[in-house]
């Protein structure tokens, strides 16, 4: 077990800047390193695009935890994924006010524009909620309330946030993803 851990950890290529960020992040939790698990998972997902089994082991080693303590967070918190998303990951708000403003139609339209054929596999169940375009450029999923109910329907593309997204605006947004 220890051997595999060491081996897989060695296979992770972690750049020095990321190591520095990790160290700085862990220092924010002087009482318990375990508190840094979620922030470290964010750093890994931002850098690698998803959370691999090697990442889980690396984080566990760094924080002196068992890998299951890390994996259980990956499977609990909807934002973490164990497979890569597209280069442009689209999150459409599914919840009531946005749905009344047309978010189901918006999701279909965004998927069509992004060349994602089967957008329906993303129905909220955890684990495999993301649909991807064949070229890997786009992926899409429904997410729950993005807290901008007054300007629905809303969506996010990676970290960027878009409000009152009409079909015309959707086309503009997708075209700007280069």
């Amino acid at each position: 077990m220890i051997e595999t851990t060491l081996k897989s950890t060695q296979t992770m290529d972690i750049p020095n800047e990321l190591i520095a960020k990790i160290d700085e992040t862990v220092a924010r939790y002087p009482v318990s390193k375990r508190s840094a698990t979620l922030p470290l998972l964010h750093l890994f997902q931002e850098h690698f695009g998803f959370i691999s089994p090697e990442a889980v082991e690396w984080i566990a080693n760094r924080l002196e935890l068992k890998p299951i303590n890390v994996l259980e967070l990956v499977t609990f918190y909807p934002m973490f994924r164990e497979k890569p998303a597209g280069r442009f990951h689209i999150r459409v708000c599914r919840t009531l006010s946005c749905a009344m403003a047309g978010s189901y139609e918006l999701k279909k339209e965004l998927a069509r524009l992004a060349g994602i054929e089967d957008e329906t596999c993303s129905n909220g169940s955890h684990g495999e909620s993301i649909s991807r375009s064949p070229d890997g450029r786009f992926s899409i999923e429904f997410v729950e309330c993005l807290a901008s109910c007054g300007t629905g329907p809303v969506c996010m593309i990676n970290d960027d946030f878009y409000e009152a997204v009409t079909p015309a605006k959707a086309a503009e947004i997708i075209n700007s993803c280069q």
Binding site: S35, L38, H42, Y77, M79, E144, C145
Partner: peptide, 10 residues
């Protein structure tokens, strides 16, 4: 004060 990000759980 530190910022701690959640990960999508209501």
């Amino acid at each position: 004060i530190y910022v701690h990000r959640g990960a999508g759980a209501y």
